[in-house]
Design a protein around this nucleic acid. Structure first.
Lengths: 225, 225
DNA sequence: CTTGACACAGAACATGAGTTCGGTCTATAA
DNA sequence: TTATAGACCGAACTCATGTTCTGTGTCAAG
């Protein structure tokens, strides 16, 4: 059964989900309208009734906030699922990363000592589930990471981690070369194959005990202007 | 921690819990009063405020059914900070982009089937200030955009726009070649220089009237795993 | 006994919020 | 062309619902 929801209707559903997750109770028609950019309450009402037709929503007539999501999923799980989507994780931007230096790791002793501009917000659902204290971000300076498809000015979000599993994109420091790179990690015998994200470029091979994994890359964020 | 809840307050808590479980939204003051046999709404209000004092309940003033059960734990350190949803921008993921086809723009009836997750949340501060309705996102398929430092699977956020200013990163469709690319835009006389983001690659030059700007790139999002 | 905090009742009040209705716009069918 | 239906807007309407106020009765401290 293929239900073609309009973009608005999808946004409405998503918003209701998120709102309930954040507030514990459903939104009003007007709150939905504001969030989804619908000027008239009647239009929101109109689309809500559509969603009821499609069996995605339940409404209690004449009841404020009388909405309930009734998708195929178990309704019990909704609030938790939503939490993942709508929560923002605050990640400290602890410094810059360049090929010529090891990754600056967040200070352990002094914990939270960053000013406001050094914290970036990321929707929790965009990353997986991780201990927030293990997350940190770095701004890339220079073009040395182009083989990792990472440009000057990009922000990368990392999870602090000393080991890696095959296929992980990791930040590794190579003491022999005295440089840091972002590569995909593949352990092959006693050697490690470090594969650039750019498929046109060749991997490098290093002894497994001669590299230092600094963290696993979870996301790359690039904003223009 | 002793909590000397009156029988009424216990019944209220119990009822709220049951009501939310049954209906998906919290009860009104009057519904509580009826269930717990309290004659006056003010008394219900009175006891609800007591429960808030005890840290067992959260209320949103002037909000219908603005109740939320909250654990008895101390509100000291919440692992994830709850943020107002209005700080998130909801952007429709309207389709895929590949070198071989023009950009699918929102509103064009492509008969698209929208999934549950073709809306992405982005912190408002990450983009600039834009009309939300002008924003859309595309998922990149294939490695054809590597010269723009965009990898397979990346999501790009665009602002719908037909013109471009020098230096803008834009999605342009080249009718002559029948392909779409992401390039930096520089108008030079009657020609346009399209500069790849990757500094090691060379620009291409096209007649200004032979290109079609589809939108301006605001951000590139890449998640691993 | 008086005082005051506490729990409660009842009713009026103000506004939050669902509903309804007339009208516009666009696309498609007749 | 006209007609019809879907999606939308704006405003009015009405009830649902939170808030506030005055006033009871109880009970323990003074």
């Amino acid at each position: 059964m293929e239900q073609k929801l309009s973009t608005r209707q999808k946004r409405i559903l998503k918003f209701i989900e998120a709102f309930i997750g954040n507030n514990g109770y459903p939104p009003t028609i007007r709150e939905i309208g504001e969030a989804v950019e619908i000027a008239s309450t009647s239009v929101v009402n109109y689309n809500l009734n559509k969603l009821v037709e499609y069996g995605l929503l339940a409404r209690s007539p004449e009841v404020s906030r009388g909405l309930r999501l009734v998708g195929g999923e178990s309704p019990k799980e909704v609030p938790f699922k939503v939490v993942d989507i709508t929560h923002l994780v605050q990640i400290p931007l602890v410094g810059k990363i360049a090929a010529s230096a090891p990754v600056p790791l967040p200070g352990e002793d002094f914990g939270y000592y960053y000013d406001d501009d050094d914290i970036i917000d990321v929707p929790q659902g965009m990353l997986g589930k991780h201990r927030q204290s293990d997350l940190f971000a770095l701004r890339v300076t220079g073009d040395s990471m182009i083989d990792a498809m990472v440009a000057d000015g990009d922000v990368i979000v990392l999870e602090r981690q000393n080991i890696a599993r095959n296929g992980d994109m990791v930040a590794v420091f190579l003491p022999e070369r005295g440089e840091t790179t972002l590569k995909k990690y593949y352990l092959e015998g006693s050697q490690v194959r470090l594969q650039p994200a750019n498929p046109t470029m060749d991997p490098i091979y290093v002894d497994a005990d001669k590299i230092s994994v600094q963290g696993r890359v979870l996301a790359v964020l690039r904003t223009l202007h």
